[in-house]
Design a protein around this nucleic acid. Structure first.
Lengths: 239, 239
DNA sequence: TATGACTAGTTGTCTATACCAGTCAGAAAA
DNA sequence: TTTTCTGACTGGTATAGACAACTAGTCATA
């Protein structure tokens, strides 16, 4: 299992062994792996060597440590990777604007055909629809609509107002598996142009994101409309 | 300098101390920092503790280790980060389209005021202007215009046709320091609409990138126009 | 029935030490 | 003078052990 005579470092061999188990799906997202001491005993190496292997996997996003509890297989994170493009709050702060988010509406509606298909639920099933306006220095910059199936999770408006949807999802025991996102230029429709205070037909950026859970089911569909005249996506590569 | 009675871990205090020196510019890119053993002696901690601090900074991209030589303040990376958004070729392949790039023109022109300012050269100085059309399955998807000061590097058309500008830049002994990129929705102008085979006034995505060398001078200005109706930026987050 | 103390388990931090593996400059040998 | 070797430096790997901080369950007690 581990070859002590190999020129490959021990920690690296352990790292690969663990990574394989995860990639093959033998160890599922959210499940606890052996403790550091157990690994050390099993592979007949010191605990620090096991820690080095695990550290690398934590850095690569494969594992998550919880002090006092253990080490767990990560749900695949999207937040960091999306950040560069979609974390409006961070983005605005970095540019010296005051970001704000206004909850426009929070309601349960019945899924139409398109939504039902995207979320893999039946037509007319209930979904939460969360509409927010994103502001920079009080100026509306984008409309963001998030849709989540009701049967998946019990959402409270109060929590939406302050915290992250994703933390509520993890509390409910779900883990995000992957997401895909698309971005395209388009033209403002009437309802959007009013909220964004731009002319109908003005250029806008559409961003759509679909997020999937480890269960294989979709968690959410997010639809964002950014005004094209004021909002520039800036991506700084300064380190 | 380091407070051994503080509840903050020692490695963390060291980490912050080093990070500060770098952020403040006291330690320049490419310069060597003290060896691990020197830090250990200076802060009166064990070498392993210093290593933990340095490890974190290496993971964050602040430092680079070179076995047998020392630990150095990193140059800032861009290519990987740009990839997700701008490597048209990879992007198209991943989606199963056949990407192609057609060189429309390669010429030296005199910089106008705006270009001169962006590239930090004098007005009317010579610059290379490289215009390409990006195709997917023979359909034009984007126009890309790259402008580089002539005095910076000796570019050959033949090399532009096949290889990367960046490899030529590194061959000439220049290194990219950082870049910034902006992305916005806009409307196609006449010249663009013709090449992209869309209507004048149709929505397009504008992407602008400015790249800087470690010398502090700008290397290039890249201006891209993507058609909004056909091109979607897809960003997959599958790990 | 609650509450609090204890305990066994986890990861987190830190030490002191050892040897390995590159790098480079200067001393020694050719 | 040129080449080779050696030694002193660098980071890389690995050990064994200690104690701290945190979690969750058990068990005795009020």
């Amino acid at each position: 299992m581990i070859d002590k005579t190999s020129p490959l470092p021990l920690y690296y061999q352990i790292e690969e062994a663990i990574k394989q188990k995860i990639d093959k799906g033998e160890w599922e997202s959210g499940s606890m792996i052996s403790s550091e001491r157990e690994f050390a005993e099993k592979y007949e190496v010191s605990r620090m060597t096991v820690r080095q292997a695990i550290n690398n996997l934590v850095n690569d996003g494969y594992l998550t440590r919880r002090k006092g509890k253990g080490t767990f297989v990560s749900g695949k994170k999207i937040e960091q990777k999306l950040l560069g493009l979609t974390s409006f709050t961070e983005d605005m702060k970095a540019r010296g604007y005051k970001p704000a988010s206004k909850l426009v509406s929070f309601q349960t509606i019945k899924a139409n055909h398109q939504l039902a298909k995207a979320l893999e639920i039946l037509q007319n099933e209930e979904v939460y629809e969360i509409k927010r306006v994103r502001l920079a220095n009080e100026v509306p910059m984008a409309i963001e609509t998030t849709v989540v199936p009701v049967k998946l999770i019990d959402l409270k408006e109060i929590h939406i107002k302050e915290g992250s949807l994703y933390s509520q999802v993890e509390n409910a025991g779900y883990y995000i598996d992957f997401a895909n996102q698309s971005l395209e230029a388009s033209i403002a429709r009437e309802a959007e142009s009013e909220i964004l205070e731009i002319a109908k037909g003005a250029p806008v950026l559409l961003i759509q994101r679909q997020t999937y859970l480890t269960t294989g089911k979709p968690l959410e569909v997010v639809h964002s409309v950014y005004r094209g005249d004021r909002y520039k996506f800036m991506i700084d590569m300064k380190r």
